[in-house]
């Protein structure tokens, strides 16, 4: 199929960018969105032009590196799907597709479609961990965990840290990401010792990085490729309230 793309091109962090149009023919329906961009880049390199920079790594929906705003939707039109797992059969011949980077004050553009997401790493460093003695792996049932908690923690742990939630949020808030981490660790016995310091530390790092506050509009959960729900934000709020009351 034939597509016209409009892609955000920006040479580096300090130079203003703009949307640039590209026509592309013979796109295979079986290509993923990133493979379609690979084909475009081959052509740009052959023509001596700068290829379009975009983030990617595993290309199987598990690493969280890919990050494109496709036609105004984070990770494109298909629900519960990362950009690397989105296939061109979701589009029609002759479509015009807009491709933009994540937009958020805390995620500055580095080049073209690549943004700097180290703000998420700083949130994790501020509390998204547990302290546990290392050594040989413990027996699987050494620490009993109720099935419901294990399932809920597992669902929250599915977050791949892609940042689509921030990109989709009208307030540039990282609450869904942070909530997923707080829920994942806070539901497990191993996460209890640091439960209060974790939430206070993560929230401080989140605000310090310049993410906005949550207004519960739910755009994040609608965009999330791992279907993390708004209940994790509720849990985050609850843990925060208790920890802040204690700290006061």
């Amino acid at each position: 199929m034939k597509l016209s793309l409009r892609i955000w091109r920006q040479p580096d962090a300090d130079t203003p960018g703009k949307m640039v149009s590209y026509e592309i023919d013979d796109v295979s329906e079986d290509a993923s969105f990133l493979e379609m961009l690979d084909v475009l880049n081959e052509r740009l390199i052959a023509e001596g032009e700068d290829p379009v920079a975009f983030d990617h790594d595993c290309r199987e929906g598990i690493c969280g590196a890919c990050s494109l705003m496709i036609d105004g939707q984070a990770h494109g039109p298909q629900a519960a799907t990362t950009t690397c797992q989105l296939h061109m059969r979701k589009f029609k011949d002759g479509d015009q597709i807009d491709v933009e980077p994540w937009r958020a004050g805390a995620f500055p553009v580095i080049k073209d479609l690549v943004v700097d997401r180290t703000a998420f790493d700083r949130i994790i460093q501020a509390g998204g961990y547990i302290s546990a003695p290392t050594g040989t792996a413990p027996d699987a049932h050494a620490v009993p965990v109720p099935k419901q908690d294990a399932d809920a923690a597992f669902s929250a742990a599915a977050c791949i840290g892609c940042g689509a939630c921030v990109a989709a949020c009208p307030n540039g808030s990282g609450m869904l990401f942070m909530g997923a981490k707080v829920a994942h660790l806070g539901l497990m016995p191993q996460g209890q010792p640091e439960r209060h310091t974790r939430v206070l530390g993560m929230v401080a790092a989140h605000d310090e990085a310049g993410f906005g506050g949550c207004t519960n509009t739910g755009e994040c959960a609608a965009a999330c490729p791992k279907e993390i729900g708004l209940d994790v934000i509720g849990r985050l709020n609850r843990d925060f309230r208790k920890a802040a009351a204690r700290a006061a």
Binding site: R6, D71, A104, G210, G212, T217, G218
Partner: peptide, 24 residues
């Protein structure tokens, strides 16, 4: 704070699809 956290608008905008989409 929210306005500072989201300084650049998307060129392409789709209708909101969140649970409480009219809230903003």
């Amino acid at each position: 704070r929210a306005m500072v956290a989201r300084p650049v608008r998307y060129a392409s905008r789709k209708p909101a699809r969140g649970e409480s989409r009219h809230a903003v």
